[in-house]
Design a protein around this nucleic acid. Structure first.
Lengths: 150, 150
DNA sequence: CTCCTTTGGTTGCAGTTGCAACCAAATTTA
DNA sequence: TAAATTTGGTTGCAACTGCAACCAAAGGAG
């Protein structure tokens, strides 16, 4: 089994990391400029919103958003402090907490989307053709479906 | 001008961010498991190594590695503490510092590459065909060449 | 030459992340 | 049922990041 990558593999890798880092930084910057919270707030709000009024457990959010549990715990602390979500003990499982969206949370979600969506369009939708966007999604999909073998 | 992205644009975006985040986390994990420092050390070591014995200014490294200057300043502090680079005042510019690689730094660079390169190969080289790798590099290249319009 | 602005780099402080230890409620094993 | 393990979540502490202020050396404009 080959251990050292080919040049073109390294090139793809380097560009992938660089482009995602700079896109991320630019979007965070845009959100901040609009006086809005960082991107991971959006991810959480979106997941919780999708789950409907029953809400979602923290552990479910954590795996969805790729955030370690202890990290998510404090993120939810801050979000609860600003009143965009609520934590409620779960009936069926005494340890779990159900996280639900408040009205303010729903409002923030759509407010963030106005900025976030525009950024996505400007930075991915505009510069890439439809075919390229599909190709990118396909390739990323392959990588995401790889087993995580640690 | 369109402000809201199409579904396939959002899909490509979401997968791009998710895949880079998880690849990054897995590689960091592999480095730590091997008792090695984090990825940004590698990036800095590589840049400095490429510059040869004259070294590189911090500001040049910072733009190359996409790290804010104050952040890089302290990263170099840590690296200097562990003896992998040296800071030396620049002759032609009294403010600047030239950063140079030590022998230990060169050793660390190649030690990290053994782990890092294997990860790249396993996570990108193996799952993707050559055509897909080229396609990914092309698309990322387009995005990187976009003006950063803030 | 003097004032003003820019550039390269550092530092203090607050906010966030990572790690490990911890608690309590399930779940499994015996 | 009692003991051992796993799972969901929190907390303390150290490390790292972001922001803004700062200092000193260059570079320009009058």
């Amino acid at each position: 089994m080959k251990k050292t990558p080919e040049k073109h593999t390294v090139l793809a890798w380097a560009r992938l990391l660089k482009v995602s880092a700079s896109l991320l930084a630019e979007v965070e910057q845009a959100l901040k400029a609009a006086g809005l919270p960082p991107l991971n707030w959006y991810d959480v709000l979106l997941e919780v919103s999708r789950a409907g009024p029953t809400g979602l457990r923290q552990s479910e959010i954590a795996t969805e958003v790729l955030l370690p549990k202890h990290n998510l715990s404090r993120l939810i602390d801050r979000m609860e402090d600003r009143g965009v979500v609520t934590r409620r003990g779960c009936d069926s499982d005494g340890r779990a907490k159900q996280v639900c969206l408040t009205d303010a949370g729903e409002a923030l979600l759509s407010e963030m989307w106005q900025v976030y969506g525009a950024e996505i369009q400007a930075r991915l939708g505009v510069p890439l053709s439809d075919a390229q966007q599909h190709s990118l999604a396909d390739i990323a999909g392959i990588l995401l479906s790889q087993p995580k073998r640690h």
